[in-house]
Amino acid sequence: MSPPEGVHPDGAGAAKLVLALPKGRVMEESLQALRSSGLHLVARDQGRALRHDAGDAVVIEMRNADVPTYVELGVADAGIVGKDVLMEMGSQLAEPVDLGFSACRLSLIRPRGVRGTIERVATKYPRLTAAYLARVGSGAEVVKLTGNVELACLTGLADAVVDVVQTGDTLRDNDLDEVDVLAHSSARFVVNRASLKLRSERLRPLIEALRRLPGAR
């Protein structure tokens, strides 16, 4: 087995923090938050390595849904990921900071004006959806999709979907109604439990600084 990322031969204290960050729009906001908290991080060259030494930390870039796994297994010391992903995974990671950005609702959505029993719900969040349906006593079937789930409603694949809603504009444009809110989500700073304890001299000041950012708690 090759040594995991972030393990440096020169000892725990000297090694840089390894941060798992999601690709895409959240990446910019995440880097911004980390920089505002005192980390000196340089942007990687366009199209270069997925893992790069960014100055005060090593940044590894991945899909949103993979962040908890990297942090849980200690390949990354910490990361940033949406609460929706953590809830869907049933994650037990330490999540000491709610960063506040990427705020959204996880909602049950139906075509406008449609009433009656829901038979089938399409979603990217099958576990949360099944738990919700059980809670409200619905016997509806859950189908897992990975892409645009609104499409499932519009084409009749499902008579409802559970998906993230940020502003609600997309829903209005497509004649869809937000019928119920399952949960609220926002970006969280998650930390590997061993790192939180063994590298607290680096992580605790960072956590404190992140909490002081506007919108964070």
């Binding site: 999540e95 926002s186 969280r188 930390v191 939180l196 708690r217």
Partner: peptide, 10 residues
């Protein structure tokens, strides 16, 4: 508390 999630806790 165990997840140190003060946001959920609040």
């Amino acid at each position: 508390i165990d997840r140190k999630d003060r946001s959920d806790l609040a």
